[in-house]
């Protein structure tokens, strides 16, 4: 095999693994959208907030330390304990559930029956609020997150692939980051768990019922509010997983919330209501943007990942407004 061909394969593999992470974030969007028709822009900030909380708990940081120091002239920063990763994760999950309850009580309850676009803008407000709140609580410095996921290139894979190139070609084997591999594995398991949950558990079935038909679900006594808390908790959990992966990769900081922006084109491509759509869309965009950058980037200045996904999704939508998996809608009057 020629080295160029192998490089292309390498790009695709890495693209697909990045795509899995996009899918994971997109999944959080889809869950909330299906159950409540809300396009939750705050999904990315939820990932940031969850990751911040996780680091904070693990390292025993004092919440609001900066604020307290500023107000009282103290110099506190850490408690004298730190938590094992698993315990910190469990506590963070609990906090995300509490968050879901508060969102329902303070915001969603008051916005039932509003136009979807109003709800969308409310979640932009929520994103801003949480960003400020998260920073105020844990400080805005870049934090390293270590929950024990292996990192760095896989030598095994490099050795494994090095012999694939044709004789005499310069090729050093393919590079994959172990963290990406783990992220992909975890994301895939999460998708499986969620699918099983929604197929086989009582709350899962209630959730699907609500997604299919709000009115009907209400009339058989499913409480919409409980369902909302449930889906916001689940997507809080999904956000935590995404935040953990991304945070382990490039540190926990503001830019982590921008993964939401990566997931939006995935949604446009895959449709807001389709879980398979989110996964396939994520993979297409992950591989597509890496390939485009690989072939076109050097010609037109690079950093095309910033917009490629959006332009792809936009062009696609203009020709197929319902997305990959959505059904064509004929409006009624």
């Amino acid at each position: 095999m020629s080295a160029d061909f192998l490089y292309t394969i390498e790009v695709i593999i890495n693209g697909l693994m990045a795509g899995v992470l996009y899918s994971l974030v997109a999944l959080g969007f889809v869950l909330i959208f299906k159950a409540s028709g809300i396009f939750n822009y705050a999904q990315g900030v939820m990932a940031l907030f969850a990751a911040l909380t996780l680091v904070g708990l693990q390292e025993g940081r004092v919440p609001f330390a900066h604020l307290i120091n500023a107000m009282f002239g103290t110099k506190i920063h850490h408690f004298d304990w730190s938590l094992p990763a698993l315990l910190a994760i469990i506590l963070t999950v609990l906090i995300m559930i509490l968050f879901a309850i508060l969102v329902e009580k303070l915001i969603l309850k008051h916005l039932v029956n509003q136009e979807p676009i109003i709800l969308f803008m409310a979640t932009i407000g929520l994103a801003y609020f949480m960003e400020g709140f998260g920073d105020l609580m844990w400080g805005s410095d870049v934090k390293t997150l270590n929950v024990g996921i292996p990192q760095g290139g896989s030598f095994w894979f490099e050795d494994f692939t090095i012999g694939w190139a044709a004789e005499g070609e310069k090729f050093y084997g393919m590079y994959v980051d172990l963290l990406d591999v783990w992220a992909a594995i975890i994301a895939i398991s999460l998708v499986l768990v969620l699918t099983i949950f929604s197929q086989y558990t009582k709350s899962g079935r209630a959730l699907r019922a609500v997604a299919d038909d709000h009115q009907a679900a209400l009339s058989v006594g499913i409480s919409l509010r409980v369902i909302w808390v449930l889906v916001w908790s689940i997507s809080g959990f999904v956000a935590l997983v995404a935040g953990m992966m991304w945070g382990a990769k490039s540190g926990v900081q503001f830019s982590l919330s921008l993964i939401a922006l990566k997931a939006l084109p995935v949604l446009m491509l895959g449709g807001f209501t389709s879980i398979p759509g989110a996964i396939v869309g994520g993979l297409i965009i992950g591989a597509g943007e890496k390939l485009f950058e690989f072939f076109m980037g050097p010609l037109i200045g690079g950093a095309t990942e910033n917009w490629f996904a959006y332009v792809l999704a936009l062009l696609f939508l203009v020709f197929r407004p319902q997305g990959l998996f959505g059904e064509k809608i004929i409006e009624r009057v």
Binding site: M121, G125, Y128, F129, G132, F133
Partner: peptide, 9 residues
């Protein structure tokens, strides 16, 4: 951020 976000909502 907190004030702006809160006010939007």
């Amino acid at each position: 951020f907190i004030i702006i976000g809160g006010l939007i909502i």
